[in-house]
Design a protein around this nucleic acid. Structure first.
Lengths: 107, 107
DNA sequence: AGATTATATTATATTTTTATAATATTATAA
DNA sequence: TTATAATATTATAAAAATATAATATAATCT
């Protein structure tokens, strides 16, 4: 079925988003394009590992890049990527407030 | 930093959503609660595997369950879970239309 | 040209996920 | 009460993701 393909693609998209370093990258790019050298200073992961995570995000089409001298500039490919991350954080906060009201109920 | 915890939780949420069987489950539950026996017939995965995926979704708090006789009924814990899956599919379709217009440009 | 900087790639070890297989639990029915 | 049905749990094998380490590439600077 065609629906199964959509399901697979959706799962793949989520899987690509399912790593803290990659979420951090998307956060760092949310305000606009940045070079790798800048971003890597804000994380504690090795350069080669960081580059691999960038590669995964790019392979999935969530970010894009260009070369600028010896630097490489990355940016978020389209706005709904950022929106999706925001939506997840919204879901999280709902989940937390949900369990909070549950705690109140148990008091 | 507290932001790092949010990032970790966000990544974990996405990771939980990052499997086709689990997305399928959320789809099957989108219309309302269902028992396992019903859902499992609409997939081609083994019972024990299906149960494990249900367990992961429940552990993450995305679905909840109750027992009804010898059946177990599952439902989506709160609406933004469904919304998040929809948002991902929206992102996907934007991505596709994006590449479509790119293809047109190359013609 | 040779050294240095920024980044990517590749190979591989480690860790985590996933699927399979077997068994356990719980409720109902015969 | 034994059998059957629905589901979960556990152990483990197989596959995939991740991190590490080493090396490669490409641009700039001396």
């Amino acid at each position: 079925m065609a629906e199964d393909i959509v399901i697979k693609l959706t799962a793949e998209l989520f899987k690509t988003l399912g790593h803290p370093v990659r979420i951090k990258i998307l956060h760092m790019l949310a305000g606009g394009e940045r070079c790798v050298c800048e971003m890597i200073e804000e994380t504690d992961v090795e350069q080669s590992n960081f580059s691999q995570h960038l590669g995964l995000l790019k392979k999935q089409g969530l970010i894009d890049s260009r070369k600028d001298g010896q630097r490489v500039i990355y940016w978020i490919a389209y706005p709904s990527v950022t929106e999706l991350v925001r939506a997840a954080e919204q879901t999280l906060s709902e989940q937390i407030s949900h369990s909070h009201s549950l705690l109140k109920f148990l008091k």
